[in-house]
């Protein structure tokens, strides 16, 4: 027991010594740490309203405890399963195409030799990221407008009948995924381009001497070289499987596509902010957070087992 106490004392002192030795580095971390503490951890106490009947006048602490009442209501709602299904569907398609698009784009850009052309392409693909969804979504809505939109005017000019793209459920998820790729794929390449810059050039030279063509270099050197980055990004992405960006859906959806477009975030907005059902929507948020944590934990464990790459 005594030996254990001495050991703990020693390791604590060593930790203090290490922190002191790297004090400047820790100083850099401090603002971010404080930010997290205030804006991320501080408000977490509000999560208790998921187990209370929150009343404005009584506040978070004063409102009455109701146990799992809101969760029971949630799981008895048929609408809840629809919004969870819609959220997962959109995210799975986004995972399949939205996650791979920046990787492919980065690999293509990495093969471009002309620096000027590369920079021009980068500028073009990064730009949409800086537009808000309100602006970008507005452009998409105008383009797809059934009477005056560019796409439908082209269809009419070719003798076709205009299509109300945004009013039909069968197109909606596709539009969400494609617009998401157009807007964010370029920006997503940054991390992969950085990873590509770190791949050892000697390996390419050795491969050329061994007679490898460009495809073989891509498959046997480039992709393995950035695989750890891809895995880390995948783990982080899977953690958002129950989380679809509110702005994009809110801007693009309309009543006729509620059946496929109503997702957790829009439901929370409608019931929480518009109908003042803060306890119910906090319960949804808590459920969402718990599932996301489970997903990120599982993916990380699998990644650790099969590739030795993980975020912890």
């Amino acid at each position: 027991m005594e030996a254990r106490r001495i050991r703990m004392n020693r390791s604590f002192k060593m930790m203090i010594r290490r922190v002191y030795a790297n004090r400047l580095m820790y100083l850099f971390i401090l603002p971010g740490f404080i930010w997290f503490l205030i804006y991320k951890y501080g408000p977490m106490y509000g999560v208790v309203i998921a187990f209370k009947d929150f009343k404005f006048s009584e506040g978070i602490l004063g409102s009455a405890w109701v146990g799992l009442k809101h969760f029971q209501y949630l799981f008895s709602m048929s609408d809840f399963y629809n919004i969870v299904r819609n959220t997962i569907t959109i995210n799975l398609w986004n995972l399949l195409f939205g996650f791979t698009a920046p990787i492919i784009l980065a690999l293509i850009m990495n093969e471009v030799y002309s620096l000027k052309f590369k920079k021009a392409v980068q500028l073009a693909v990064y730009f949409p990221h800086f537009l808000s969804w309100v602006v970008f979504g507005g452009i998409i809505i105008n383009m797809l407008n059934p009477s005056q939109g560019m796409i439908n005017m082209a269809i009419k000019a070719l003798g076709g009948k205009p299509v109300h793209f945004l009013a039909q459920s069968k197109y909606f998820v596709g539009i969400v995924v494609i617009t998401s790729i157009i807007k964010e794929a370029g920006w997503g390449t940054i991390v992969y381009l950085a990873a590509l810059a770190g791949v050892d050039m000697d390996q390419y030279e050795a491969a050329v001497i061994d007679g490898a063509n460009r495809w073989q270099k891509l498959i046997y050197i480039t992709l393995p070289g950035i695989s750890s980055t891809i895995i880390i990004m995948l783990i982080l992405r899977v953690g958002y499987l129950l989380d679809v960006g509110f702005e994009q859906i809110y801007v693009l959806y309309n009543p006729s596509v509620y059946s496929v477009g109503d997702v957790i975030s829009t439901y929370i907005y409608r019931m929480g902010l518009q109908n003042m059902q803060f306890s119910l929507t906090t319960a949804i948020g808590l459920f969402q957070g718990a599932i996301n944590f489970a997903l990120i934990f599982t993916t990380n464990t699998l990644a650790k087992r099969f590739s030795d790459v993980s975020i912890w």
């Binding site: 009543p255 509620y258 059902q277």
Partner: peptide, 21 residues
């Protein structure tokens, strides 16, 4: 009725009906 979702059902059906979906 505060937790009801009636408006959503009406809006969805109305728009789909009028637009021929």
């Amino acid at each position: 009725l505060i937790q009801a979702n009636i408006d959503k059902v009406v809006e969805e059906y109305t728009s789909q009906a009028i637009l021929g979906n």
